[in-house]
């Protein structure tokens, strides 16, 4: 394995993440190809948000590592865009639609620069693409749920990234808007972008995605939709079959057991 496959967008290597000692992701390991529309599905509390945050480096895993385009995360941050779950944001914050989308134009490197003409143009275009131009000056708290969702979509567009992580972008969106967003995503895919989308509507999974990751604390299965969405897999994910893992997790929390023994924690990234 000296030559790495260039078409791998995201590699998760044996990731374990715990909150307060209780693992919510357990030995998660996969490789996601570039240029695909990939769904992450699983029941509430199965660790979808946690996984996405770990993949983007917002959370640091207790063990394992993430590589994006075969490089460690901090080298490729500008290639990553993020659409957070709507509940995770303070909607009272004094900012307009335009302000929030403009945040997409700032990277850690050019924080102190004033927005250029190009930045402003991209921001306006991104807002137009999600159909929010009539609300461009509106304070974000005064938008409907579906409109709020689209503000973050616009911000991620403004980031002009290669990989887009979106946490439930279809929640609270009406059917017409859902179709519009999906069309937008397909266009992005045609441009070679990779979209990794947390989704919870099993009905539409096969229609939307090329591949799905079925998650419930561990990876139940990953691959093309047809092979993953089998009755047995769904039962494993949604049927409360997690007893052993969740019991072990509880136990570790109660007994203050370390999630990983020390020598495994700081394994170097490159083999």
């Amino acid at each position: 394995m000296t030559v790495k496959n260039p078409s791998i967008a995201v590699e998760a290597h044996n990731i374990t993440v715990a909150y307060d000692r209780q693992p919510v992701l357990w030995e998660v390991d996969f490789e996601m190809p570039a240029g695909k529309l990939i769904g992450i599905i699983g029941p509430n509390g199965s660790g979808k948000t946690t996984l996405v945050k770990t993949l983007m480096g917002v959370l640091t895993p207790d063990s394992g590592y993430v590589e994006i385009f075969n490089e460690p995360l901090h080298e490729v941050r500008s290639k990553i865009a993020y659409v957070p779950q709507r509940e995770s944001v303070d909607w009272d914050f004094p900012a307009s639609v335009y302000d929030v989308v403009m945040m997409g134009r700032f990277s850690a490197k050019k924080l102190f620069q004033r927005p250029s003409k190009q930045d402003k143009l991209v921001v306006r275009q991104s807002i137009e693409k999600v159909g929010l131009t009539p609300f461009i000056r509106r304070q974000i708290g005064q938008l409907s749920g579906g409109q709020q969702q689209r503000v973050f979509l616009a911000r991620s567009l403004a980031q002009e990234a290669d990989i887009y992580f979106m946490d439930e972008p279809f929640v609270g969106v009406d059917a017409a808007t859902e179709t519009a967003i999906l069309t937008l995503m397909l266009t992005m895919k045609d441009q070679g972008k990779t979209l990794i989308i947390v989704h919870h509507d099993l009905q539409t999974v096969s229609e939307y995605f090329d591949e799905v990751l079925l998650l419930n604390t561990r990876v139940i299965d990953y691959g093309p939709v047809e092979t993953v969405l089998t009755d047995a897999n769904l039962k494993a994910a949604y049927g409360g079959q997690l007893n052993v893992l969740s019991k072990v997790g509880e136990l570790m929390k109660q007994s203050e057991f370390p999630v990983r023994e020390k020598e495994f924690k700081n394994r170097t990234v490159k083999k």
Binding site: K53, M56, G57, V58, H74, R77, S78, I80, Y82, P84, S88, M103, F106, S107, A108, L111, Q159
Partner: peptide
Amino acid sequence: DYALSIGL
């Protein structure tokens, strides 16, 4: 989270 994701 967004600040973290862009590497601030």
